[in-house]
Amino acid sequence: MNTFRQMLRPILRDPVATLGLLLVLLAVLVAVFAPWLAPYPEDAYESHLLQRLQPPSAAFPFGTDNLGRDILSRVILGTRSAITVAVSVVGISMLIGVPVGLWAGWRDGWLSETLMRVTDVFLAVPQLILALALGQLMAPGLTTAMVALSLTYWPFFARTVHAETRRLRTALFVDALAGLGAGTPRILLAHVLPNAAPAILVRATIGMGFTILTAALLGFLGVGAAPPSPDWGLAVAEARQHLPEAWWFPTFPGLAILLLVLGFNLLGDGLRDAADPRLRRSRH
């Protein structure tokens, strides 16, 4: 746990990373309190045909969409699903990738070799194409998109953890522990994993931003979130038919994606620098 405190301090000292942290915290707050923050929370599903495609005004700061729904409310409500998707996908990927990486990094032999080859196969296909294929083969929908994204993201964790474990396996303190008679699970969970935690944390933060982008893209291509979900990618897709007149329709959901992903990326960047003193030195 010490490592986290060690990592937090440099972040607060770096204004850019702090901005990232603030953006992420803001988004989490918005997500938690979305139904209370949104001016028209019922616009998650309600339609108002008489006020379709209104430009931004005092009543509707971001304008209304093709079914007369308040875009500001939907952007706020969409934060929740964006963060849920990101957290679940990264969580599931970690649950698969971290054990695989630990095992394959710790042990030698055909099994760990095979595990890493399988990882390579998954990494050899561009993630989006694989997610699209999976999304089409199963029924399209948000759950499918999350499964597909998790199935394609875990290899990144496996790689990261594998590399860290390999590095630590030869470390002196591990040898000492083994000499003291500590069992493998104990060494892995109590000693190797905490030391690999910063690398995992950086990967997870970057993965959040990445997942939000890809999930939005899947929503945009029609294999992700289903209407009337206030999904941002879906909103941009729905907006296309109403351009160039309704410029506000794709603009604000897109900006929301940009800000949230920017937040995660800036934070991840800061974390990476904090975790890797070599890079921090080069940054000044």
């Binding site: 897109g254 940009l258 992903v261 920017l262 990326n265």
Partner: peptide, 23 residues
């Protein structure tokens, strides 16, 4: 360099299309 990785390509494409091709 951080922002460039945070932009959704489909959104950027639509915004550029909106400005340069449509408007």
């Amino acid at each position: 360099s951080v922002g460039g990785l945070a932009v959704a390509s489909f959104w950027l494409a639509i915004m550029l299309q909106l400005l340069f091709a449509m408007e």
